[in-house]
Amino acid sequence: MQKTKELEIMEEVLPQSYEKTVGKSPAKEFWKKFKKQKLALIAGVFIIFLIVISIIGPFIAPFDFAKADYKQTLQGPSWDHWAGTDAFGRDIFSRIIVGTKISLLVGFISVFAGAVIGTILGLISGFYGKWIDSIIMRFCDVLFAFPGILLEIGIIAILGPGLENVVVAVAIFTIPMFARIVRSNTLMLKSSLYVEATKSLGAKNFRIIWRHIFPGAISSIIVYFTMRLGTSILTAASLSFLGLGAQPPSPEWGAMLSAGRDYLGSAPHITIFPGMAIMLTVLAFNLFGDGLRDALDPKIKD
């Protein structure tokens, strides 16, 4: 076929004009989808708000969270005490604000530790398979065989009560969940063509795992991480409620619930407000996690 002169001129211009550089990075694609999830966006804003509160809480709390005032015990909500006072006359609103940091930190540290260990186990288990996979997965099955709260009570029974041990207990309980999720991702990615292609280039296993399999699993890890944060905050609060975690006078939300137990009939606000704080926080993390999943999960891509 003959080229016209016009074609020759155009060839220089065409490539750029006919394929505009789009440069859509995965991050941009994600944001485009996440934007549409209104509930998750609201939840995200609320989580940021919680984080800010947990940092500046002690400075903005209207009262000292630990200072008792025996003249004002068991007061209902008022202009002075927005959420009322407890049996020692402490301002509940201030205690909730200061307690935010404890709940978020306990949740974050425990899930983070569990996620790191679980991810490493999952990667090893899925990639190498054979006996090492059997050992890791049977270990996970054992942990899964216990009802969650029972396992954690058991661990604390061994380690002794205290907030640090709650973190350890929740982390241990989180490990098998991440191990399983990462393992199934690894199994899928291991047989993917691009991993095979990298193998045929002569890459070492570590490189394949770190550069190709882990990044492929990271979206599931993030989604699950967020969802687990909510659950872990709830679990930590439950353990404190049972007296196994934070000890009074700590303003931990679960411990506050526990302290209000005896006044449920006469002063329900002592339990209602910390309860609301727990519920809203857990709800926010779950909604945020749902939104992340919808935006990140390739299976629901349009």
Binding site: P26, S192, L193, Y194, E196, T198, S200, G202, G216
Partner: peptide
Amino acid sequence: RKEFQMIFQDPYASLNPG
């Protein structure tokens, strides 16, 4: 492996999307 390389069937799946 430097000496023998492979071209795969599915150009969608053989490149890491990330």
